Simulated assay, not measured.
Amino acid sequence: MNPRIPRDFVLPDPAAVHTVRSADGAELNVEEYGPDGAPLIVLAHGWTCATAFWAPVVNRLVADFRVVAYDQRGHGRSPAPAGPAGYSTAKLAEDLEAVLTATVPAGRRAVVAGHSMGGMTIMAAGGRPAVAARTAANVLVNTGPSALLDELMVLPPAVRGPRRFLHRQILRSRLPLGPVNGISRAVLKYATMGPATPADRVEGCAQIVHACPSGVRFHWAGVLETLDVHAGLARLTAPTAVVAGSHDKLTPPVHARRIAAELPNPCGLLELAGAGHMSPVERPADVAGEIRRIAALVADQLSAPAPEAAPGAVVPAPATVPGAAGPAETAVPESVRNTPVEESA
């Protein structure tokens, strides 16, 4: 019997779902959760994931924040690019800029958090005026700026000579992952999660990863193989926190330490003992807590601007935002919002 997926893997009902067009016309599925007018959090997921990957974190933030999450191109409900030219770090940066421009109102800023390729997206967008103008702070989770193949730890250190070659073959495989089963769960857990991760959380993560089309997985793996976003990292002037997992085999903590050392405005390095690469689903309370900590530090930038009052008018006090409902009670089916679209040829 398959493990039951945890309740917090169910996204709350979205307050809004819409499509945002990027600079090259690519369509991005964007979902918003939480009270309108609340402080803004924008989430960018990683390679082979989707908006649903953030569900455990969203459920811990939604009562107090307006949370925006979007499917990276080719993932979830965002269509795949028509050809290889649609896959690059520049495209990731353009997509983030488009999402921020569409969802962060003029005069407001958001805390922008990115996991894995989502963190690379934030670094790639470093220095873009439209992004900087809408960003109060960043949180970079389980990510790296370059040399990803050189630091991979999926294969044991005893595999010396062909280790980099074999890592490349694993990441750039075109083979479909197929249905989730006991073997695939065990492989995913070994490669991407901490050894103590419960079976139900492995199952929830596996369903998301297996939904990524193999062609999309392949093309983004090619981008990650030659990744170098140090230039953008050096231009991240907003306060930026870094989160790492002590057992992360894909972006080991050495990456987090390099990022923290290069940041113009570092705001803490949190290493989660026992966590692997999938911290937002392995340790969602810790990741949400770090996002809350950073949001508190820049709270003055996250507040909505006060309305302009006519001379002599009395401005009413803002209404109290009621608490949002907790995670849905139902078990997780194949969520409609996470069903991948058919990829382009």
Rank of each mutant, 00 (worst) to 15 (best):
W47I: 07
P280S: 09
G46M: 07
V159L: 15
R60L: 12
L43H: 10
A110R: 01
V187I: 15
A299Y: 00
P253R: 05
G127Y: 08
W220R: 04
L302H: 14
G276P: 02
S116A: 13
H219V: 00
R109F: 01
D300L: 11
T240W: 09
F218T: 11
P284S: 03
V30R: 07
L28R: 08
A306Y: 02
P14I: 06
A275G: 06
V20K: 07
G312R: 05
T89Y: 13
V315F: 00
R66H: 10
M278P: 01
L11V: 05
F53Y: 11
V332Y: 07
G326L: 07
M193C: 12
A52Q: 15
A52P: 00
P198T: 12
G232T: 12
G76C: 03
L166N: 06
L227E: 13
A285I: 02
I122H: 04
G83N: 15
A98P: 07
D228V: 04
A82F: 08
G232M: 09
E203A: 15
L270M: 13
H45K: 08
N29I: 00
P84Y: 06
G326I: 08
V243S: 01
F65N: 01
D95A: 12
R185E: 15
W47M: 07
M120Q: 10
R235K: 14
A328W: 00
P56V: 02
A98I: 13
E31H: 09
T197M: 02
V180A: 14
E31C: 08
P35M: 04
P129V: 07
T192E: 13
C267K: 07
E97F: 03
A234V: 10
